[in-house]
């Protein structure tokens, strides 16, 4: 049986054998549905980490600028009824322009960039809006299958207004030729839902002589009343 979180076809299954790591990590027994009255826990009452001045600008965290194409990524966080989610903590992390993470276990033989760490955070404003400045990450190889490459992506983490709306996801760039070969993106059954993860090139966001703009809106879970078929 499908549980509440895959009811809408918008969520990937836990077991998706083309993504090999799921086979020994996905629980094999069905999730047990918690009554909503028990699961609707509120967010921490003590607030989040203090947000630093350069936390949402990944190009200004070192003495010099990182290598790569400077970009702005901005959008709105809303719930399933299109209401703004304000005060949501957004954290991001990504590879550098060459497709390498600053991480001890990343063995991809591409250069590290001394001027790029690849982590950022911000909080949405009253209208649910956020904005990051960063560089476009490179695609990178992984060992999932023969000649496997991840499409360029930025990892996103969001804390909405309750425990149930916690979301970790990935943002992709338009028209990436790697999409059909990527089991992580393809694990999402519905094409419209997959499309939610692809940012849109946005000339309005693009800053002259400075940075290309990509817009990426995020829809957090709100309620479970509407079946997937009725959604847009």
């Amino acid at each position: 049986m499908h549980g509440r979180s895959d009811l809408f076809g918008s969520q990937p299954p836990l077991l998706y054998p083309p993504y090999r790591s799921t086979t020994r990590r996905a629980p094999s027994r069905p999730l047990i549905r918690l009554p909503e009255s028990l699961s609707d826990l509120h967010m921490p009452v003590y607030g989040w980490w203090p947000i630093g001045e350069t936390d949402n600008d990944l190009t200004r965290q070192h003495p010099e600028e990182p290598q790569g194409q400077r970009i702005t990524v901005a959008g709105r966080v809303v719930d399933e009824d299109a209401r703004a989610v304000s005060g949501a903590l957004i954290e991001i992390w990504q590879a550098n322009a060459a497709g390498r993470y600053r991480h001890a276990k990343d063995a991809h033989p591409a250069p590290l960039d001394p001027n790029f760490t690849g982590g950022g955070r911000t909080v949405t404003d009253a209208d649910g809006r956020y904005e990051f400045t960063t560089i476009k990450p490179g695609a990178y190889p992984w060992r999932n299958h023969d000649n496997a490459w991840r499409p360029a992506h930025i990892h996103f983490s969001l804390f909405g207004s309750t425990f149930r709306t916690r979301l970790v996801t990935q943002m992709y760039f338009p028209d990436d030729p790697l999409f059909p070969y990527d089991p992580i993106l393809q694990s999402i059954p519905d094409e419209r839902a997959r499309h939610r993860l692809v940012s849109r090139f946005d000339l309005e966001l693009t800053r002259p002589e400075c940075a290309l703009g990509f817009s990426f809106d995020i829809v957090l879970r709100g309620h479970d009343a509407t079946p997937f078929e009725g959604r847009v």
Binding site: F8, S10, Q11, P12, Y19, V78, E80, D81, A82, E91, I92, W93, A95, Y101, R102, H103, K105, D106, T117, G118, G119, G120, R121, H155, S157, L167, V168, T169, Q170, I184, L185, I188, D190, R192, A193, R194, R196, L197, I218, V219, L220, R221, G222, H223, A225, T226, F228, G230, R231, V232
Partner: peptide
């Protein structure tokens, strides 16, 4: 009209700076 929620994706192995 209710919107389709943004799908989840794995954190992957390299989340430590985020």
């Amino acid at each position: 009209t209710a919107l389709i929620a943004t799908p989840s994706q794995t954190v992957g192995p390299f989340f430590h700076h985020g």
